[in-house]
Simulated scan of single mutants.
Amino acid sequence: MREAERASGRPAAASFEHVSPAGAALAGPVDEATARPYGVDPARVGALAGAYLRARDADPKSSYGDFAAVSREVDLELADLLAGVVSDGIVAPGYAPGVLEVLARKKNGGFLVMEADPGFAPPDEEAREVFGMRLVQDRDRSPLTPELLTDVPVGALSDAARADLLLGLAVLRHTQSNSVCYVRDGRTLGIGAGQQSRVDCTRLAGAKADTWWLRRHPLVQGLAFRPGVRRQDRINWQVRLAEGDLTADERARLRSAVTTDPGDLGPDARAAWLAGLTGVSFASDGALPFRDNVDHAHRHGVTAIAEPGGSIRSAEVEDACRELGVTLARTGLRLFHH
């Protein structure tokens, strides 16, 4: 998050699960679909709390019981928000007066609060021992700056796409490889992490981006839940309806959780709504080895791609971007995290 703020100049937040972020975002506008589950007024939410809400909204099903990370001092607004969600801890460079008292009451004192040293510089080498074998490598210290995105063989990068791609690169540096990231308007829509095949990362993260967009469909937003249905259950039902593959048992349980027939998003309705998802940026931690990554990314609204380049099929990737009208930037920087 420190790297994301340095690259953007805006407060940044992430929602982590296990060794990879479920979502990450910069401070920015909070829409009704993001704010409503948490009882927040989207017009009045502050920058840091808004960044965390936007990060958690990327994959709210996975963010249940997350670990939060933010780039600035935690204020009372964010502390009050964290007090009401299922989360296990937070790491931040500082805490405003009164914040620790709020967080200390969470989970009966079991909520983990960590303070990061903003000036900490990691060692030049990182090491890991595996069954008696010690592996050592130089730490990746390359700064994430706009200069990484000056080699643009196809199209032209807008300022918005450049900012989104820099956020995506910061996320990928700390996401289990192989990894790719879909970003739009300063927030991740889908992160594909730890897959053996890069195109599987692309498809997995693309499906998450589609779900994020479909959760904003009026049918999904219009679910009328019965009193007593918990917040996370409401969120999970929105996600499952958006994903579109409810089992017979799930459909029966959803009907019992709402006051009216939830309806269904048929193929035509889904396709029509997904056609409105555009302006998405896509970053990859390693070179795209085949054009199929471009083809799949384009299906999920991607209009700009950043990848290291250097593959033996990079010319095919470039041709695919040109054919589909996707801007391509080559960073020359691999961001593998193993």
Results as ranks from 00 to 15, higher is better:
5 E>C: 06
5 E>T: 11
8 S>F: 01
14 A>M: 10
15 S>H: 00
17 E>Y: 02
19 V>T: 11
23 G>N: 02
27 A>Q: 00
28 G>H: 10
33 A>L: 08
36 R>I: 00
37 P>E: 08
38 Y>R: 10
38 Y>P: 08
40 V>Q: 13
40 V>N: 07
41 D>C: 09
41 D>H: 02
46 G>K: 03
62 S>R: 09
63 S>P: 03
65 G>Y: 07
68 A>H: 01
69 A>Q: 08
71 S>L: 01
73 E>L: 07
73 E>D: 13
76 L>C: 03
78 L>P: 09
79 A>V: 00
85 V>W: 04
85 V>C: 06
89 G>T: 09
90 I>H: 10
97 P>C: 13
99 V>H: 07
102 V>R: 13
106 K>A: 09
108 N>V: 08
110 G>R: 07
110 G>I: 00
114 M>Q: 15
117 D>P: 04
118 P>N: 04
119 G>L: 10
120 F>I: 01
122 P>C: 04
127 A>P: 00
128 R>A: 15
129 E>H: 06
129 E>M: 09
129 E>S: 14
129 E>D: 12
130 V>R: 11
131 F>L: 12
136 V>T: 13
136 V>R: 13
143 P>S: 05
144 L>Q: 09
152 V>A: 07
153 P>W: 05
154 V>K: 00
155 G>T: 03
157 L>V: 01
158 S>A: 13
165 L>N: 06
166 L>W: 00
167 L>V: 01
169 L>T: 07
173 R>F: 08
174 H>I: 00
176 Q>M: 05
177 S>T: 14
177 S>R: 05
178 N>T: 07
178 N>K: 13
179 S>Y: 05
183 V>Q: 10
184 R>Q: 15
185 D>P: 09
186 G>P: 11
186 G>M: 08
186 G>Q: 10
187 R>F: 08
189 L>I: 13
194 G>W: 12
195 Q>T: 09
198 R>V: 11
205 A>L: 03
206 G>Q: 06
209 A>N: 02
213 W>P: 01
215 R>I: 01
221 Q>N: 03
224 A>R: 15
224 A>P: 00
229 V>T: 06
232 Q>A: 08
233 D>S: 12
244 G>Y: 02
245 D>Q: 11
245 D>V: 09
249 D>E: 14
252 A>R: 15
252 A>T: 05
255 R>D: 13
256 S>M: 07
260 T>S: 13
260 T>F: 09
260 T>A: 15
261 D>E: 14
267 P>E: 12
267 P>W: 06
268 D>R: 11
269 A>G: 14
271 A>W: 03
271 A>G: 03
274 L>W: 05
276 G>H: 10
279 G>W: 07
280 V>D: 03
282 F>S: 09
283 A>D: 14
288 L>T: 03
293 N>G: 03
295 D>C: 10
295 D>S: 04
295 D>R: 15
295 D>Q: 10
299 R>N: 09
306 A>W: 03
307 E>A: 14
310 G>V: 02
310 G>Y: 10
312 I>F: 13
314 S>T: 12
315 A>C: 12
316 E>P: 02
320 A>P: 03
323 E>V: 04
327 T>L: 02
328 L>W: 01
328 L>G: 14
330 R>M: 13
334 R>W: 12
334 R>S: 15
